[in-house]
Simulated assay, not measured.
Amino acid sequence: MKHLVTVERLCLAGHSLALAFGLAGLLLVLPNPEFIASLPTVGQTAFGWSMANGGVGYILLGAVTVAIYAYRTLGIRHWLTFMLPAVILSLGSELLGTSTGFPFGAYGYLNGLGYKIAGLVPFTIPLSWFYVGLCCYVLARSGLESIGLPLWAKLVGSIALGSVLLTAWDFVLDPAMSQAPYPFWEFGEVGEFFGMPYRNVTGWLGTGAIFMFVASLFWGAKPLNLNRAQLSVPLIVYLINFAFGAIITVTELDSRYLIPTSMSIVLGVVPAIALWWMTKPAQGVESALSGNLTREVPTVSVGVGQK
C-alpha cells in the first residue's frame, strides 16, 4: 500500500497546485494582458495551453486522488459502488438539466472543462460530483457514527448531511464559475439566488442525495471505523475546493456575494471540520504519520465483508 499512498499524495499535491495555478491565472494573469504579451512565443503557447486545460487537469487529479484514497482505505467494493452511481446519476442529471432546464434551471457549459458528452456536459463534471461527493459522504457518515444515534438515523443523516455539504460547496462554486469575468458555464435565466435559480439548490441537494442513497444501499450498515488521520484526505480535498470557489467569488464579484460565501462556510466548512473532529484520533505516531497504513488490511476487510 505504500506506493499507493505515495501516488495519492502526489496527486493531491498536483490537485492543490493546479487549483492554485488556476487562481493565479484567473485573478492575476488574465486581467493583465500586457504580462502575457511580454512572454516569449513559447511562454505564450504554454500559458494558453495550461489555461485551456487547467480545469480538466485539476478535476482529473482530484478524482484520481479520491479514487486511490477510497480503494486503499475503504476497499474496491466501496470505491466502485460509490463512484459508479455518482458518475452515472450525476451525468444523467446534468444531461437532463442542460437539455430541459430540470433540475438545475436553464444553463449551458462553455469551454475549458474538456470534451462534452453529447455536446452538452464536459466529461469532467461527473468526476467532480464523484470526488467531492465521496468526501462529503465519508465525512458525514464517519462523524455521525461517532455519536449515539439509532442506526437508521445514522444512515439517513449521512445522506442528508452529505448532500448539504455538497450543496454548500456549490454556493461558492456556481458564482465563481458562472458570473466571474472568465466563466465556465452560464445560466439562461435570471437567478433569484445570487444569479442562480432556486431550483439549482434543490437540484444539487436532490442529485447528491440520490447517488449517496444508492451508494449506501451497496455499502450496507457496517460502520466505516475511520479515524481522523484516515479522514484527512477527504477534509483537505473539500476545503481546498471550497477555497478555490470562495476566493474567486469574494475577489471577483461584489460584496453581495459575501452572503452565499458565508452560507457555504456555515453549512459546509464548519460542519465538515466538526465531523472530522468528532471521529476518534489515530492511535500511535506511526498511524498518524502514515495514514494508518498498518491497519489497511482490517479496514479493507470491513468494507468488503459487509451486507
Rank of each mutant, 00 (worst) to 15 (best):
Y71T: 05
T261S: 13
F211I: 10
M51E: 02
A168S: 15
P271H: 02
S216P: 03
W152C: 02
V270F: 00
H78T: 07
A180T: 14
D174R: 04
V201C: 00
V285D: 11
T6E: 03
G108F: 14
G133E: 09
W185H: 12
G148T: 09
A288I: 13
S38T: 13
Y238S: 03
L113I: 02
V121L: 08
V214D: 00
L113G: 09
L166Q: 10
S16Q: 13
A243L: 15
L28M: 14
R9T: 12
P271E: 11
V269T: 11
G268E: 06
Q230M: 02
G92S: 08
G22Q: 03
F82A: 12
V42F: 10
T81P: 03
K2D: 07
L166C: 04
G245H: 07
P181M: 13
I236W: 07
I147G: 06
T279C: 15
L144N: 05
G303A: 10
P298F: 04
L173F: 05
E192I: 11
L120V: 03
S290Y: 08
L161W: 01
V233R: 06
T299P: 00
L151G: 04
G143N: 12
L89D: 00
A180F: 03
M278V: 04
F130K: 09
R256P: 00
P223F: 02
D170E: 14
T279G: 04
I259R: 10
S290E: 03
Q230T: 12
D174V: 10
G206H: 02
S158W: 01
L275P: 06
A37H: 05
F123M: 15
P31G: 11
Y131M: 10
V138W: 02
G305H: 00
W129V: 04
A282M: 07
N227R: 06
E296R: 11
A52F: 01
V7K: 13
E286K: 14
L96E: 06
I210E: 01
I36E: 13
P234M: 09
A221H: 09
L120I: 04
M177Q: 11
R199H: 13
P103S: 04
L113Y: 15
Y198R: 00
K116F: 06
W219R: 14
G133D: 13
